[in-house]
């Protein structure tokens, strides 16, 4: 019982509910004889697909700016990079890496500006970040209408502006997924995708052990301490935000190549929330995150969503439980994290 209480304290009630729910779904899936291997393949694929977007949360949290709800800003940068790779008529890995190469400097520059802003609003980073993300997406809606693209794959055949969804099927859809992919039994392993995620995680791990990474941790953990050790806290926060924005940009390109489409206009608006929720489910809080939280959280969250859909279809035939589960779980865990962040200080 004591052990159980300890576990409860460490995981928190919200996480326990989610894990129990996950287990319940797993059992249900077995009971109603859903093809487990297919569900597992799908979950692994989606973990790789979302992983980098979730990883983008890490530098933000560690540098002390909290959950980066402003990630749509990075996503837009990634989309711009992606569109230019198509505009240049590139295919396959060349196309994919060109998209990444274009979006990184762009995201770094935009992230720098966004970071300056975030440093001005200490204490309200999350709220301001959310609305800066929303504003950027809606401003970019006008941008998509006005930026001159010539590729017929991007433009509407008639009228102005770019298409709402841009197919990648003839360019670099699933280049990562299909790279060296293999099957274990019925379970498909998208090697390239997972490898790419792991490489990014490795880079992050290395970064966090470098001098900038360690000082960033200190700045995030206790800004006053950092100041007293001669660390420039604002600079660390800025670095965190830039890194987060860049990862957001790379993340959306990885996402899109797996999904097969770039989705423009309003669609990046809400993409920050599942990423935030994933890392929180993995065990992160508003001021502490690890790479293991990214991997565990993404897998759990995507697993939940993958299983919810066929299971509801089995049970009620109607309606999409998956979407409802996504809304309740992701916002529930964010709320939970917020209450912990607020109450934590009083417990001291």
């Amino acid at each position: 019982m004591k052990k159980f209480n300890k576990l409860l304290n460490r995981l928190g009630i919200a996480r326990i509910i989610i894990i129990l729910f996950f287990i319940a779904l797993c059992i249900l899936a077995v009971v109603i004889k859903l093809p487990i291997s297919m569900l597992l393949s799908e979950t692994i694929m989606r973990t790789g697909m979302y992983g980098i977007l979730v990883l983008a949360m890490v530098p933000g949290i560690i540098s002390g700016t909290g959950l980066n709800f402003g990630i749509p800003i990075g996503i837009i940068c990634g989309l711009v990079g992606g569109l230019y790779s198509i505009e240049f008529n590139l295919n396959g890995f060349t196309g994919f890496f060109t998209a990444v190469a274009i979006s990184i400097p762009l995201a770094a520059a935009i992230g720098y500006g966004y970071g300056l802003l975030i440093n001005k609003v200490k204490g309200s980073e999350m709220m301001v970040g959310t609305y800066m993300g929303f504003s950027a997406v809606s401003l970019m809606c006008i941008g998509w209408l006005l930026i001159p693209f010539n590729s017929p794959a991007i433009k509407w055949p008639i009228g102005k502006g770019v298409r709402v969804t841009i197919s990648l099927s003839e360019r670099y859809a699933k280049v990562l997924n299909n790279f060296m992919n293999f099957k274990i039994g019925e379970v498909e392993i998208p090697t390239g995708l997972i490898l790419f995620l792991f490489i990014n995680c490795l880079f992050m791990w290395i970064f966090l052990r470098s001098k900038s990474g360690v000082t960033m941790k200190a700045a995030g953990d206790n800004p006053k301490f950092a100041e007293a050790s001669g660390i420039n806290v604002d600079k660390c926060r800025l670095r965190g935000i830039i890194l987060s924005t860049v990862l957001g940009a790379v993340g959306i390109i990885v996402y899109a190549q797996s999904y097969g489409f770039y989705q423009l206009y309003q669609s990046p608006m809400m993409m920050g929330f599942p990423a935030v929720a994933s890392i929180l489910i993995g065990g992160a809080s508003t001021n502490d995150a690890k790479i293991s939280h990214v991997l565990v959280g993404t897998f759990l969250f995507q697993g939940l969503l993958v299983m919810a859909l066929p299971i509801t279809n089995e049970i009620v035939k109607e309606g999409d439980l998956s979407e409802i589960v996504r809304i309740i779980v992701s916002n529930g865990i964010i709320l939970y994290a917020l209450t912990k962040a607020g109450g934590g200080e009083e417990c001291e």
Partner: peptide, 21 residues
């Protein structure tokens, strides 16, 4: 408040200033 990174390890607390400086 100022002296320690409470949630970090002892060894990191001991060396971090000289790492930075």
């Amino acid at each position: 408040g100022v002296g320690l990174l409470l949630d970090k390890s002892m060894e990191l607390n001991i060396v971090i200033s000289s790492m930075q400086i």
